[in-house]
């Protein structure tokens, strides 16, 4: 039994069958990549996991509990954190404030009415946020307005915010999309470091084969809404079906 079990999930948008019959099992403490050509249903699948979409058929179980019908914040509180394709951070807030919000969510749950106490009086939250910034090598940026950072730094902050909640499953949606090569490599290094240092399961959706092959332990190839094959990176590389559906196309580019 994996930590995340997706069974017979289907999702239809009008006339388009975005997901056919997806079965997927992600084992605990592995890095599992989901790849596939454009329109294969990768993002739809991800959205079904985090509560943004509800699949028409099938079930999604996280750690033995169904996530279907739950709201995104409830699913997050179960232990699933999500990193977006374009970094989603609180652009109007400082870097430290950004980091404090998931710490509040971790400590107080989904809603806590504390309208009288001062933020600066929350010593444990500030300590935790600063420690997290330290781990992300961002301590020097703590007072900066987060919107003014580079894309790579925003990504780093977003990943840090997700990690500060100590999730059991981290979902990454094309974490290096639109990044310069240097930022991409930094992100790969960061993810490798996370993988080594923490007990965490990572599911990653990615276009960039360099990223996929340098990180993942298992790969699922999705094409036209159904999983084509699931195997180790080495086997995927040589798989004729995959070459045909996906890699051949990208090798031409």
């Amino acid at each position: 039994m994996g930590i995340l079990e997706v069974k017979n999930v289907g999702k239809r948008f009008g006339g388009l069958q975005a997901l056919g019959d997806v079965n997927l099992s992600i084992a605990e403490n592995t890095v599992h990549a989901i790849i596939g050509p454009n329109g294969a249903g990768k993002s739809t699948l991800l959205n079904c996991l985090v509560g943004k979409l509800i699949p028409d058929t099938g079930s999604v179980m996280f750690d033995g509990q169904s996530v279907l019908g739950r709201k995104p914040f409830e699913i997050n509180q179960m232990g699933i954190s999500r990193v977006f394709q374009t970094p989603e951070i609180f652009g109007d807030l400082t870097v430290l404030e950004n980091m404090m919000i998931p710490c509040f969510a971790k400590r107080d749950g989904s809603f806590e009415m504390n309208a009288i106490g001062s933020v600066m009086g929350q010593k444990d939250i500030i300590e935790r946020a600063e420690q997290m910034l330290e781990e992300m090598n961002m301590a020097d940026k703590r007072g900066m307005n987060s919107a003014s950072m580079s894309r790579g730094d925003k990504r780093r902050l977003e990943i840090g915010m997700c990690l500060s909640q100590e999730p059991r499953l981290l979902l990454l949606d094309e974490p290096t999309a639109g990044m310069a090569r240097a930022d991409t490599n930094n992100t790969i290094d960061l993810l490798k470091q996370i993988k080594e240092e923490r007990d965490i399961t990572i599911a990653i959706i990615e276009h960039d084969m360099h990223v996929v092959f340098s990180l993942s332990e298992r790969i699922t190839v999705l094409a036209q809404g159904t999983p084509l094959v699931e195997d180790t990176p080495d086997n995927i590389k040589g798989h004729p079906k995959v070459r045909e559906a996906y890699l051949g196309e990208s090798a031409d580019q």
Binding site: V50, K71, P72, F73, N76, Q77, S81, R82, F84, E88, I89, F90, G91, D92, L93, E97, M100, I101, P102, F104, A105, K106, D108, G109, S110, F111, E112, M113, N114, A115, I116, G117, S118, V119, M120, Q122, I125, M161, Q165
Partner: peptide, 29 residues
Amino acid sequence: IRIFRSPFGLMLRAIKSNQQRLNYTGLNT
């Protein structure tokens, strides 16, 4: 002033800034 400087006020500013991120950070807006 107290509300502005409180954790509650911080959450409200976060709602203005990025409601999506807040939802995916386990907070119910």
